[in-house]
């Protein structure tokens, strides 16, 4: 790709190690998009609604895709999805769950609330790179997305 893909990825995960691996895997998988990170559902909601430290939109742009962990302190992933889908302007943001926990009920609940994809966190970095490569190919290339204006 000649032009830089500026579609923003927002990572929501409380585990610092997992975020290190995720960024490494994204880099290896050729995902060069601007990436931001929040630590929990509360941070995610604040980021999206431009509250607190996120008032300035310029350094905190609206994401194209959210990589969301489910088990986070305070506001968990489920609550975050529910909130996001209630906001008309965020209804079409791509939410990809990336969770270390994947009980059948959790998967069902995530989709029912409006997640677009559910991925399990792999243990091996190599597998995480493969996974991020799939994410890049599918969500950033193959998939036709109904872009909302604020995401352009």
């Amino acid at each position: 790709m000649n032009t830089i893909d500026s579609r923003v990825i927002l990572i929501s995960d409380d585990n610092d190690d997992d975020v290190v691996f995720l960024r490494e895997a994204m880099r290896k998988a050729g995902i060069a998009n601007p990436t931001y990170r929040v630590r929990d559902g509360e941070g995610l909601i604040q980021y999206l609604s431009g509250q607190g430290v996120y008032t300035d939109r310029e350094p905190h742009p609206i994401p194209f895709l959210i990589l969301l962990d489910l088990k986070m302190p305070r506001t968990n992933g489920f609550e975050a999805i529910a909130w996001i889908r209630q906001q008309p302007i965020f209804r079409r943001i791509i939410i990809v769950i990336l969770s270390g926990s994947f009980l059948p009920d959790e998967i069902i609940q995530a989709y029912d609330l409006g997640a677009n994809s559910f991925l399990a966190k792999p243990t091996q970095l190599y597998h995480l790179i493969e996974l991020m490569d799939d994410v890049r190919k599918y969500w950033f290339s193959r998939n036709r997305h109904a872009l909302c204006e604020s995401c352009l």
Binding site: N15, D18, F21, G100
Partner: peptide, 21 residues
């Protein structure tokens, strides 16, 4: 058991990830 197993995986991921890096 489930949450113990689940919580055990996070440090295993960390060990594996940092060593491979």
């Amino acid at each position: 058991c489930y949450s113990v197993a689940h919580d055990l995986r996070a440090p295993v991921r960390a060990i594996h990830g940092y060593v491979s890096m």
